[in-house]
Simulated scan of single mutants.
Amino acid sequence: MRHTISVLVENKFGVLARVSGMFSGRGFNIDSLNVAPTHDAALSRITAVLKGDDTALDLCIKQLRKLINVVDVADYKDGQAVLREMILAKVKADASSRSEILQISDIFRAKIVHAASHEVIVELTGDEGKVAAFLRMLEPFGIIELARTGQLALTR
Rank of each mutant, 00 (worst) to 15 (best):
M1Q: 07
R2V: 08
R2D: 12
H3C: 06
H3V: 06
T4M: 15
I5M: 01
I5Y: 02
L8K: 10
V9Q: 02
N11D: 15
N11A: 12
G14S: 12
G14H: 11
V15P: 01
A17C: 07
R18V: 06
R18E: 14
V19R: 02
F23H: 05
G25Q: 09
F28H: 08
D31F: 11
N34W: 03
V35L: 14
A36N: 15
A36C: 11
T38W: 15
H39P: 04
D40S: 13
D40K: 15
A41N: 10
S44K: 05
S44W: 03
S44P: 08
S44M: 07
I46D: 00
A48T: 05
A48V: 05
A48E: 07
V49F: 01
L50E: 08
L50A: 10
L50R: 06
K51W: 05
G52S: 06
D54F: 04
L59F: 11
L59T: 14
C60I: 04
I61A: 12
K62F: 05
Q63D: 14
L64N: 07
K66W: 01
L67T: 03
I68P: 04
I68E: 09
I68H: 09
N69E: 13
V70D: 03
V70Y: 02
V71F: 02
D72S: 13
V73S: 04
V73A: 12
A74H: 07
A74N: 04
D75R: 05
K77M: 09
K77L: 15
D78C: 03
G79T: 09
G79Y: 06
R84N: 14
K90H: 03
K90C: 07
K90I: 04
A93W: 01
D94E: 08
D94R: 08
A95K: 10
S97R: 12
I101E: 04
L102K: 13
Q103P: 00
Q103F: 00
S105Y: 03
I107E: 11
I107P: 01
F108S: 04
R109M: 14
K111G: 12
K111Y: 14
K111N: 15
V113G: 11
H114S: 14
A115Q: 13
A115C: 06
S117F: 02
E119W: 04
V120Y: 02
V120S: 07
V120L: 15
T125L: 09
T125M: 12
G126L: 10
D127S: 08
E128P: 00
E128R: 13
G129M: 06
A133T: 07
F134A: 12
F134Y: 14
F134S: 06
L135I: 09
L135N: 10
R136P: 00
R136A: 14
R136N: 15
M137T: 11
L138K: 00
E139R: 03
P140A: 10
P140I: 02
F141P: 00
F141E: 07
G142M: 12
I143L: 05
I144V: 14
I144W: 01
I144A: 03
E145R: 07
A147M: 08
A147F: 02
R148H: 06
Q151R: 15
L152Q: 11
L152G: 07
A153V: 03
L154F: 12
L154K: 00
R156D: 00
